[in-house]
C-alpha cells in the first residue's frame, strides 16, 4: 500500500465506518485521513490538492459535518462515521446535486468536484435556500481553477430550489 508511513510505536487499531461500511484497520499515528481513504481504502474520489486546508478538494463528512480530510489524522476518525463522494449516488441514480452539476456544466476537469459536492451538501442542510452571495461565500473555501465558479453557483442554486419545492 502507498502512503502508510513508518509508525512511531505500533500502528493503532482503528474502527471507522466509511460510507456505511465498517473497516478495522491498523493505522500509523501520522497518516492523514485523506491518504487513508484514498490509498488504504481505495476510495480515490476524495482528492488532494494542497494538503494545507485551502483548496477543499479533500472535503468529506466526519460524523455528518464537512471537514478537510487533509487536516485530519486517520486515527481521529476512530469510532466515527465518514462519508465520501462515493456515497452520494444510489445505484444508477445520482444524487440530485450531482444531477444539477451535470445539468449546469458545473465541472470541467472534475478534480475539485467531489470536495465541492460534500461541502455543498453540508451547507444546504444549514441553509436550504441560500442566496447566490451566500453560495459564493461558502464556495470561497473550495478552489476550482477551471470553471470560474458561475456554473457551480448555478447548479447549487438550482439544486437548492428543487430541494425547496
Amino acid at each position: 500500500m502507498s502512503g502508510s508511513g513508518e509508525p512511531v510505536g505500533p500502528p493503532r487499531e482503528i474502527v471507522v465506518t466509511v460510507n456505511g461500511r465498517r473497516y478495522h484497520e491498523a493505522a500509523p499515528d501520522r497518516i492523514l485521513l485523506s491518504d487513508f481513504l484514498r490509498h488504504r481504502l481505495g476510495l480515490t474520489g476524495t482528492h488532494v490538492g494542497c494538503e494545507h486546508g485551502v483548496c477543499g478538494s479533500c472535503t468529506v463528512h466526519l460524523d455528518g459535518a464537512a471537514a478537510r480530510a487533509c487536516l485530519l489524522l486517520a486515527v481521529q476518525a476512530d469510532g466515527a462515521e465518514v462519508h465520501t463522494v462515493e456515497s452520494l449516488a444510489s445505484g444508477d441514480r445520482m444524487h440530485p446535486l450531482q444531477e444539477a452539476f451535470r445539468e449546469h456544466f458545473a465541472l470541467q476537469c472534475g478534480f475539485c468536484t467531489p470536495g465541492i459536492l460534500m461541502a455543498t451538501l453540508d451547507f444546504l442542510t444549514h441553509n436550504p435556500t441560500p442566496t447566490r452571495t451566500e453560495i459564493a461565500e461558502m464556495l470561497s473555501g473550495q478552489l476550482c481553477r477551471c470553471t470560474g465558479y458561475a456554473p457551480i453557483i448555478d447548479a447549487i442554486a438550482a439544486a437548492a430550489q428543487a430541494g425547496a419545492e
Partner: peptide, 21 residues
C-alpha cells in the same frame, strides 16, 4: 448534450494519476 465525462467524475470515479496503480 450533457458531457460524457461528468458522471464518473461526479461519482468520484474519475481516474487521475494518483488513483492509478
Amino acid at each position: 448534450p450533457h458531457r460524457v465525462e461528468d458522471e464518473a467524475l461526479l461519482r468520484g470515479r474519475g481516474r487521475f494519476i494518483d488513483d492509478l496503480s
